[in-house]
Amino acid sequence: MVSIEDYGEFETAWCPGCGNFGILKAIKQALVNLGRSPHEVLVASGIGQSSKTPHYLNCNSFNGLHGRSLPPATGAKIANHELTVIAVTGDGDCYGEGGNHFLHTVRRNPDITMIVHDNQIYGLTKGQASPTSEIGMKTKVQTHGVFNMPLNPLSLAISLDCSFVARGYAGKVSHLTSLIEKAIEHKGLSLVDVLQPCVSFNKLNTFKWYSERVYEMDDTGYELNDRVRAFEKSMEWGEKIPLGVFYVNEKPCFEDYLDVLKSGPLYRNPPATEKVNDLIDSFI
């Protein structure tokens, strides 16, 4: 039996009251509910407050470069596709600096769960606008307010036919836990964008702001693979912000196209020295 304690309890460098705590708790609980032991799990991250998450989980962890959580996560998944791979990233890390990797990882569709701590601000560098900051938000750098159109991660992912798209909220931990569980169980790339209050630097999108707006979608009465409906729903933002699973499209994942993985994870496959030697000999 796997327990929450197996994933450890660590002192963090996050501010008291940070939305990250809710997300960390939900990740742990989802892994426990699914019976995944720490040694079966890899949590990979880039740079940002979100990317400190692997430091606070007692499992396989990888902390790489800014914007680059997805490529190493994909690489690790290919080398050992028996691992449960979770890429933990943020709105700056994944939608800004690593935006290109986001697009192409969605296209590639490896069986990875992406959890994006979306606090609509740069927390690590102490409060500049991120790609999801609201128009008009003033910061120390955007002194006259943000005027760039915020990126809508859900619409973007759905437009690229991402195979699983969901949104959670750090203030609704049990709901978020169930989303992460579904995302991990889904075969293919799953995006869970998590609304996360930044209590120190985002004075606009606060716990109160989110709590007044978010609601859990009723996920009955329509097909989750209805892309047009999902796209329409993903554009709902303002007075009401929907939470839940927006879109699911079951399709082959990246690993399915790699015949070499059919005989098991790469790390367990011995080098085919004999075959290579035979091949070389055939030319001599």
């Binding site: 560098t125 102490k126 120390k140 750098v141 002194t143 006259h144």
Partner: peptide, 12 residues
Amino acid sequence: THIVEDLSQFMA
């Protein structure tokens, strides 16, 4: 970061 923040303030 402080360099760019200070420059942003000058701009503002």
